[in-house]
Each structure stands twice: as structure tokens, then as C-alpha cells.
């Protein structure tokens, strides 16, 4: 694709000789250029390196007040999660257990994800209603609940990238094609494959009727 600028030059040269018809074949006249203000309105994503963070700052203390007003009804006053709404604090050390709790402090690899998600999708049912400073403050409060930053911290665009989450190193890229190599290329048994078959579990043995905390989570 490094050829594109040179291609553009060639197109420009053709344009001079053959006129606009040739140029239109190169880039179809469909759509229009995005305006900077339009891109700014929609481009709100934030990467782990801090790219995309807006100007602003917010303290843990400010975040606590906002959290109690706008978030605690679902996530619980201490981030423990109300009913089946997700907990967003705690769970440290639970990943190998029977019931892993995946919170920013226990599981999430990057703090940027927290900022990005609150900014785009929260509060639930009133998304995109928070100012940048409020998102910094709520993110700061959530990070302090997971003991990632101290209670007197003021989170800002400038110091955000320095925040590291404890489980950042807990992820690795999909390796199924090597780690699960045994699932490929085997000739499946067709006759007399087992001597006995035992039923180990029945769905009927479990109660799956609606009940607030029972059962695994879908997402």
C-alpha cells in the first residue's frame, strides 16, 4: 500500500491528459469527506497507551459521589453488584476458583477499557451523558475500589497511561491451533469404541427455574 501516494501522482498525471472521467474511475464519487467535527463527535475510543483520552481530570472523591448517584443502584455501593448486575470490585485471587469474579482489579488488563466503556455505554439507559471530567472521576473511584490507585488520587489525561492493572499479564493470544492440535486430523472411531457408557449428569437434576443469583452468566 506504500504505492498509493505514487498511484495518486499517476492518477493526477492521467487527469491532466485524459480529463476528469479517468479520475472518477479511480475513486468512485460516492460518499463524502468526513468533517473534523463529525469525526471528533464519534471518535471517542481510548487505547491502552492513552490515545483517544480527552482533556480533563477527576478525583476519587468526586467519583465516589457520582458513583453513588449514578451507578450504585445496579453495581452496589461498594461495587459488589446488586442482584444479577455485575460486580465491579473485588474478586482478586478468584480466577482459578469455582466462581471467578472478573472485575477491573481481578481480571481486566487495561484501565483504558474502563474509561472507554463508561464513556460510551454508561450509565445504563442514559449513555453518553457524562462529561469528560466525570468519566475521569468515576474511573478513578472504580480504580481506588480495586486498590489500583490511592484514595487521594486525581486521575487525568496526563497521568492515565501510568495506571497499570494487576492482571495485565494474564492474557495470551489464541493458541488453539497448537495447544489443541490433537483435535485435528484424527480418524474417529466408528465401531466398538467403548465397552460401557455411564450417565454422569442430568439436566433435570439441576434447578434452572428463574432465581436471582442462580446459574452461570451468559456474558
Amino acid at each position: 500500500m506504500s504505492k498509493f501516494p505514487r498511484l495518486a501522482l499517476a492518477v493526477a498525471a492521467c487527469l491532466a491528459i485524459f480529463g476528469p472521467a479517468v479520475a472518477q474511475q479511480q475513486v468512485l464519487p460516492l460518499g463524502r469527506a468526513a468533517l473534523p467535527a463529525e469525526i471528533a463527535a464519534w471518535d471517542i475510543d481510548v487505547r491502552p497507551d492513552g490515545q483517544g483520552l480527552p482533556a480533563g481530570k477527576g478525583s476519587v472523591k468526586e467519583g465516589e459521589q457520582l458513583f453513588l448517584e449514578q451507578c450504585a443502584a445496579c453495581h452496589g455501593e461498594f461495587g459488589e453488584g446488586a442482584g444479577r448486575w455485575p460486580p465491579i470490585a473485588g474478586g482478586v485471587g478468584s480466577l482459578k476458583s469455582e466462581s471467578p469474579e472478573k472485575t477491573p482489579g481481578s481480571y481486566w488488563p487495561y484501565a483504558s477499557t474502563l474509561f472507554d466503556y463508561v464513556r460510551r455505554a454508561m450509565p445504563y439507559g442514559n449513555a453518553q451523558s457524562l462529561e469528560a471530567d466525570q468519566v475521569y472521576a468515576i474511573t478513578a473511584y472504580l480504580l481506588s475500589m480495586s486498590d489500583v490507585i490511592p484514595e487521594d488520587h486525581v486521575l487525568s489525561k496526563e497521568n492515565f497511561a501510568a495506571v497499570k492493572l494487576p492482571n495485565a499479564g494474564g492474557f495470551f493470544d489464541d493458541d488453539r491451533e497448537t495447544a489443541e492440535r490433537q483435535f485435528w486430523g484424527r480418524e474417529p472411531c466408528m465401531k466398538n469404541c467403548k465397552t460401557e457408557v455411564k450417565i454422569l449428569g442430568h439436566a433435570r437434576a439441576l434447578d434452572v427455574t428463574p432465581d436471582e443469583k442462580k446459574g452461570p452468566k451468559v456474558d
Binding site: 491502552p48 480466577l95 477491573p104 488488563p109 487495561y110 483504558s112 472507554d116
Partner: peptide, 13 residues
Amino acid sequence: WHQREETSKYTDL
């Protein structure tokens, strides 16, 4: 971008 749906969700513990 490491968005919510590719970090806290849709990763296989």
C-alpha cells in the same frame, strides 16, 4: 483497542 468486549468479556479463562 482492547475494548470491553475483547478484554473483560470474550476472553477465555
